[in-house]
Simulated assay, not measured.
Amino acid sequence: MNREAIDLEERFSHFDEVWSPKVIARLNDYEIKLARLDGEFVWHSHQETDELFLVLSGSLTIQLRDGNVSLGPGQLFVVPRGVEHCPITDGGQVRVMLIEPAGVINTGEAGGELTASHDDSLA
């Protein structure tokens, strides 16, 4: 059992790449991930799970087919399972925390060049 606090700033200092979530902790069958986002992602969905976005810094819009959700630091949004969405940053890099079941692929059903490999090196 790890008895040390996880310092988010320290964990962010270990990577610069965007759209490539890093696992920093586990909670039951869930992974807590940090990610840097910049620009527009790909439209995708996760048929088997909801996806939680918690903005730590910057401004993020979660584009949905029926409207958008704008988020700033300290705000979160849960994208329901099966809902197509596309995150886009609003002028610069955004830092987020994601909470998802273990093994969720960042591009969901869409795949493509932005699909990140599973990285739990920061856990």
Rank of each mutant, 00 (worst) to 15 (best):
T115L: 05
D120F: 08
A116H: 02
V79M: 12
R95N: 06
P101K: 14
V94A: 04
E109R: 05
G92C: 06
V96F: 04
G112Q: 08
R81Q: 12
A116R: 10
P101Q: 08
V96D: 00
V94L: 06
T89K: 03
V104N: 01
V78M: 13
H118S: 11
I99V: 11
G82E: 08
M97I: 07
R81I: 02
M97S: 00
G92L: 02
L122G: 11
S121N: 09
S117K: 15
L98Y: 08
P101L: 07
H118E: 13
D120L: 05
G103D: 06
T89L: 10
E100R: 02
V96A: 04
T107V: 03
T115Y: 07
S121R: 14
P87I: 02
H118Y: 13
E113K: 01
L98T: 09
E84T: 10
P80S: 11
T115M: 10
C86N: 15
R81E: 03
R95V: 01
D120Y: 12
T89N: 05
E109H: 15
I99A: 08
V96W: 04
P80F: 07
D119R: 06
I99T: 15
V104Y: 02
V83R: 14
E113A: 04
V79L: 13
E109V: 12
G82V: 13
I99D: 00
S121I: 09
V83P: 01
G91C: 00
A123C: 12
G91D: 11
P87W: 11
S121Y: 13
I88R: 15
E109T: 04
H85D: 04
E100K: 04
L114I: 02
H85P: 07
D120A: 06
A110S: 12
V104L: 11
R95A: 00
D90L: 03
A123M: 13
G103Q: 09
T89D: 07
E84C: 00
A110R: 15
T115P: 03
G91Y: 10
R81Y: 01
Q93E: 14
S121T: 14
A110W: 10
A102V: 14
N106L: 03
I105A: 03
A110P: 10
R95I: 00
V83S: 03
V96T: 05
S117H: 13
I105P: 10
H118F: 09
E84M: 08
A116Q: 03
V104K: 06
A102Y: 08
G112T: 07
P101D: 00
H85A: 06
G111F: 12
I105L: 12
T107I: 05
H85N: 13
R81G: 00
V104H: 05
T89P: 05
N106F: 05
V78Y: 13
D90M: 04
P101Y: 04
R95Q: 05
P101T: 03
D119S: 11
H118P: 03
V94C: 03
P101N: 05
N106A: 01
S121P: 10
P80M: 13
D120N: 12
L122F: 15
A102P: 00
R81H: 04
I99H: 05
G112Y: 09
M97Q: 09
I88Y: 11
